[in-house]
Simulated scan of single mutants.
Amino acid sequence: MSEDLTGRFVVALDLDGVTDKAGLMDRAARALSLPDWFGRNWDALADSLADVTVWPEQAGGRGLLVVVRGWEGYARQRPQEWETAREVFAQAVRVMPSLTVALALGGSS
């Protein structure tokens, strides 16, 4: 976690090795420091991304940039789940202007 050039707090969501929705939810919960009550489903992820009160404390007032990397393998293995994940990211960005989700190309290292 760090700061990007726009001042937003940056979180890396590394999906390298993720093979299913449960793995994606676990990685998201860890990367975003989501609370224990996080439901680990698509609606809960959407709600968490669009709610600054559950964002990492350092993002408060600055905005959040989530960089999703290592996603290509998951997208190939679970294309329908990946499409849903992309829709969740897109919807959260539409309702939360201080959120940016970027898909990194080129792996997780």
Rank of each mutant, 00 (worst) to 15 (best):
V18A: 15
R30N: 14
F9V: 12
G70Y: 11
Q91M: 12
D4H: 01
D4C: 11
R86E: 10
A29K: 13
L5I: 05
P35D: 11
S98E: 14
Q80I: 06
E57H: 03
G106E: 02
A50Y: 11
V66I: 05
A44D: 13
R62H: 10
A31P: 01
D47H: 14
V54F: 09
V68K: 02
L103T: 05
A75G: 14
A102K: 12
R78S: 10
D26R: 15
E57S: 08
A12R: 08
L13W: 02
R8G: 01
A28I: 03
G73V: 01
A102V: 08
P79D: 02
F89W: 12
A102N: 07
L103P: 06
V95G: 12
T84I: 11
V66L: 03
A104F: 04
G60Y: 03
W42F: 05
M1I: 03
Q58A: 15
A102Y: 04
F89V: 01
R62G: 00
V68T: 09
Q77K: 11
S108M: 01
Q91W: 07
G17Y: 07
A12H: 07
E72D: 08
R78W: 00
G106I: 02
Y74R: 07
K21L: 11
G107V: 06
M1A: 13
A22C: 08
T100E: 12
W82F: 15
R69D: 01
P97V: 01
D14R: 08
P97L: 01
D51F: 12
F9Q: 09
D26N: 13
G7Y: 10
G17M: 06
V66K: 02
A44I: 04
A85D: 05
V10Y: 00
P97C: 02
V11L: 04
A90C: 01
L105G: 06
D36E: 15
R94G: 05
D47K: 15
E57G: 01
W82Y: 15
P35S: 11
E3M: 10
R30G: 12
